[in-house]
């Protein structure tokens, strides 16, 4: 809190160098989130620039209350800006809406089964060494993450990259905290299941 207070005071007094510290600290992590929502590097950068501009204006105008946590405040702006950006550039309905829309027959985890096709990654090749095998595991995890629907990948990014707590994620996405926990748990369980189908625990433990 002290850090937020000091830095926002400096920025209010016209110190742009103070803001460049914020940019350096958050740009990578926030970019991962916008990229996950927009799926395109160029759009993600545009949206993130806009989010930083909004944060700057909020600090300068005194809209940002120093007692609130800067990171949570900023990631809320990043998320809202990316969603606005998506709505602007795409005519189709934003699939993030499905974050809190569930059909009658919908069960948590259904879409995880649909989205990832294991057949793409069953190469059947024999692995000569540990490094090749580890690389293969990383590839499987990478393609699993890429294939995840937004309602999972956005939450995972917020949790693993943006270091937000379950409560903070639930506040930003306006979802019940149980749903947030459940989605993280299910996404991870599914990943574990995929990996353990191909490799034994002992093999995985060699990479740890």
């Amino acid at each position: 809190m002290e850090y937020s207070k000091r830095i926002s005071e400096n920025i209010k007094n016209g110190d742009t160098a103070g803001f460049s510290d914020i940019v350096r600290e958050f740009s990578g992590k926030a970019f991962a989130l916008t990229l996950r929502i927009l799926g395109n590097k160029e759009d993600a950068e545009d949206s993130l620039q806009e989010a930083f501009m909004r944060l700057y204006r909020a600090i300068v105008s005194g809209q940002f209350e120093e007692r609130s946590k800067l990171s949570t405040y900023f990631y809320t702006i990043v998320y809202n800006t990316a969603v606005d950006h998506y709505k602007k550039i795409k005519a189709k309905r934003f699939s993030i809406i499905s974050i809190d829309v569930e059909g009658d027959n919908y069960e948590e985890g259904d879409d995880l089964n649909k989205s990832y096709s294991e057949s793409h990654h069953s190469t059947g090749s024999s692995y000569s060494d540990k490094a090749t095998r580890e690389n293969e595991v990383s590839k499987i995890i990478g393609s699993y993450i890429t294939s995840l629907p937004e309602q999972y990948s956005v939450i995972l990014t917020m949790f693993y990259i943006n270091d937000l707590s379950h409560e903070e994620i639930s506040n930003i996405l306006k979802l019940p905290i149980g749903t947030v926990k459940n989605r993280i748990f299910r996404a991870k369980s599914k990943l574990r299941e995929i990996i353990l189908k191909k490799y034994s625990e002992e093999e995985i433990l060699q990479y740890v």
Partner: peptide
């Protein structure tokens, strides 16, 4: 591994 896969950097 999840963190590594989700990570991304702007230009």
């Amino acid at each position: 591994q999840i963190s590594l896969s989700l990570n991304a950097m702007p230009s």
